[in-house]
Design a protein around this nucleic acid. Structure first.
Length: 417
RNA sequence: GGAGGAGUCGCAUAGUUGGUCCAUUGCGGGAGUUUGCUAAAUUCCUGAGCUGAAUAAGCUCGCGUGAGUUCGAAUCUCACCUCCUCCGCCA
């Protein structure tokens, strides 16, 4: 949610920002409702003033008269305020000025690359590789560490069993990620994975069809989180943090649940796109105006982790059309995946500025002022996809897998065979 | 699931025969003054908004949430939510 004052003062800016994100809203209509609500509010306040004065004088007759008028105005105000709120919440967070205006992912920009893509079709055997790489599912099945078939019997499509050394890899990634981030001062958290509808709404993910991708438990009206962010960010709902305690950084470990509605037929092979996967997620709460710096910091940590794994990647900066509703800027880190001969998204880091903290009412006390915090979130490891990248990049001709050096002490071996 | 108890302006507290409560006090936080420093003393400010050029003045709302009773509710009624204690069940 934006500051209504900001919308009053910059209606055309807000309108354009929504358009850039491909979201259809009518700012003028919102301002009309706002105007109407303010007029009614003024009248209601005046009547209440009269009422209070009359009550003090114990003028019962006059009080009765005011009461009737007040009830009428109050219900009118309530109706307008409700309609206003409905439209108001549909206004997306504008992108930062440095974000490129674009329609969809085809307009995203690759801003840097790291590492030499192995097994690249372009470089091919010429670059020293004399066998054709397998994809993660072929490797995983050969090694007996990924089982999609059994999962489909038990749970349906887009689920998987990780077995044996894949499980060791998962826990190694978690340990390595935690070790790295705890050194940076992050507080580790295991959060709830079920949250209320109010929480999801407050996060701004129920707008524009966002609820389509979340599992909903009807009897209890609870939602399964799509990422730990969904329960980490609202942890401080309705709180006033101390400026001294900022920045506050958390690293959460949880399972993420996604319906993947609308992605039928896309990435159906293996565990690239599944309904359930585990994830290490970073969330930062920072002071106003410090989100840009924090954004670069979180991105640098993501890069640090993948550099440590020695997996080639590229950093992609999202254009306005690919940002999502609450984000003001977003970077994806795409790891090289030889099985597909392309880079695929493995992490994502966004600043939502004060968009979520307004709805969630998370402030900090800075001197005498109470200000809304800026919130950022980013992936440390999406475990499943990181395992894919490891299997495919570290494969040998015989189908065995070298274990990345930094993970060896956690896996307890240097080769998976 | 059952029985009790409780939810007050960052934290902790006072206030329930309805009417100087537009809510007490302490701590924390902020601004200033004083003492050479550390530290302490002391004054003022410290819920959210609205009208307004205004750091002038005034007003409204706010005591878990939402309804209701009333001329008037933190105080009365109802529903709901959350937390605590005990019992039952269970990883």
């Amino acid at each position: 949610m934006l500051d209504i004052k900001f919308i009053r003062q910059n209606p055309e800016k807000v309108q354009k920002a929504a358009k850039d994100k491909g979201i259809d809203i009518n700012v003028e209509h919102v301002l009309e409702l706002d105007n109407k609500a303010r007029g009614l509010d003024l009248m209601v306040q005046k009547l209440r003033e009269d009422r209070n004065r009359v009550a003090k004088n114990k003028d019962i007759e006059k009080g009765k008269e005011i009461k009737i008028r007040l009830e009428k105005e109050e219900s009118a105000l309530k109706a307008v305020a409700q309609e206003l709120n409905e439209w108001f919440l549909k206004i997306p967070n504008p992108a930062k000025p440095d974000v490129k205006v674009g329609k969809d992912e085809s307009d995203n920009e690759v801003i840097r690359k790291w590492g030499e893509p192995k097994f690249s079709a372009k470089g091919g055997p010429a670059s020293g590789w004399d066998f054709k790489p397998l994809d993660h599912l072929d490797l995983g099945e050969k090694l007996g560490i990924i089982d999609v078939k059994s999962a489909s019997k038990v749970s349906g499509a887009r689920f998987a069993y990780l077995k044996g050394d894949a499980v060791l890899l998962e826990f190694a990634l978690i340990q390595f990620g935690l070790e790295t981030l705890i050194k940076e001062g992050f507080i580790p958290i295991v959060p709830p994975v079920l949250v209320t509808k109010e929480t999801m709404k407050a996060l701004g993910y129920m707008e524009n069809g966002g609820q389509e991708d979340m599992y909903h438990l009807e009897i209890d009206d609870l939602y399964l989180v799509g990422t730990a962010e969904h329960s980490l960010v609202p942890m401080h709902k309705d709180e006033i943090l101390n400026a001294k305690d900022l920045p506050k950084r958390y690293v959460g470990f949880s399972t993420a649940f996604r319906r993947e509605a609308g992605s039928y037929g896309k990435d159906t092979k293996g565990i690239l796109r599944v309904h359930q996967f585990d994830k290490l997620e970073m969330v930062s709460f920072v002071k106003q105006g410090q989100d840009d710096r924090e954004h670069e910091y979180l991105l640098s940590l993501e890069e640090k982790l993948f550099k440590a794994l020695e997996i080639p990647y590229q950093v992609v900066k999202m254009c306005t059309g690919d940002l999502g509703f609450p984000a003001a800027r977003k970077y994806d880190l795409e790891a090289w995946m030889p099985g597909q001969d392309k880079y695929r998204e493995v992490t994502s880091v966004s600043t939502v500025t004060d968009f979520q903290s307004r709805r969630l009412n998370i402030k900090y006390q800075d001197g005498n002022d109470k200000k809304y915090v800026n919130i950022l979130n980013g992936t440390a490891f999406a475990i499943g996809r990181t395992i894919i990248a490891i299997l495919e990049n570290y494969q040998n001709e015989d189908g065995s897998i070298e274990v990345p050096k930094v993970l060896q002490k956690f896996v307890g071996k240097s080769v998976i065979r």
